Computed example of a mutant assay.
Amino acid sequence: MIAGLLAAYGVILVLLGVFNASDEELARGDGLNINLWGGAGMLSSGRRVRGVGPVATGCRSGGDRRGTRPVIFRQ
């Protein structure tokens, strides 16, 4: 649930950064589009918390009754 909120707010901020960036907002951020970069960070964090993002966890679903186990402990 928290990952979904992070991703949703991230999408909103990315869209604001792309379509609604004014010169005044860019001046307040010293030329950096804060909404765009903040939204990208939140979207990436939401994906990583959910487990969809490009994070190497070392785990995969093996279909056994105990659920997901680390690959390095399989025999």
Results as ranks from 00 to 15, higher is better:
Arg65Asn: 10
Gly41Ile: 14
Leu6Arg: 01
Gly31Leu: 02
Val52Met: 03
Val49Glu: 11
Ser45Gly: 12
Glu25Cys: 00
Phe19Trp: 10
Arg47Ser: 15
Gly62Met: 07
Phe73Met: 11
Trp37Thr: 08
Arg66His: 08
Arg69Lys: 11
Leu6Pro: 01
Arg69Val: 15
Ala8Phe: 15
Gln75Thr: 10
Gln75Val: 09
Leu15Gln: 05
Arg66Ala: 13
Gly4Glu: 10
Val14Ala: 05
Gly29Pro: 03
Phe19Tyr: 12
Ser45Lys: 02
Arg48Lys: 10
Gly51Tyr: 01
Glu24Val: 11
Met1Gln: 10
Ala7His: 02
Glu24Thr: 12
Ser61Asp: 15
Gly39Ala: 03
Arg66Phe: 12
Leu36Val: 05
Ala3Gln: 02
Arg50Trp: 10
Asp30Tyr: 12
Gly58Lys: 00
Ala7Asn: 02
Leu13His: 10
Asn20Gln: 07
Asn35Ser: 08
Met1His: 09
Leu43Arg: 01
Gly38Leu: 14
Val18Arg: 06
Gly31Arg: 00
Ile34Val: 14
Leu36Phe: 12
Ala21Ser: 15
Arg69Leu: 11
Val55Ser: 03
Gly29His: 03
Gly39Pro: 02
Gln75Arg: 13
Gly63Val: 08
Asn33Pro: 03
Val11Gly: 06
Ala27Arg: 13
Val11Arg: 08
Tyr9Asp: 12
Val49Asp: 06
Ala21Glu: 14
Ile34Pro: 00
Gly29Asn: 06
Gln75Trp: 09
Gly51Ser: 07
Gly58Glu: 03
Leu36Ala: 07
Arg47His: 14
Ile72Ser: 14
Ala21Leu: 11
Gly38Asp: 07
Gly62Pro: 00
Pro54Met: 13
Arg50His: 06
Val11Met: 09
Asp23Pro: 08
Met1Leu: 10
Gly53Met: 00
Pro54His: 15
Phe73Tyr: 10
Val49Pro: 01
Gly39Leu: 04
Gln75Glu: 15
Ser22Pro: 11
Ala7Glu: 07
Tyr9Trp: 13
Arg50Asn: 07
Thr57Asp: 06
Gly31Val: 05
Leu32Trp: 13
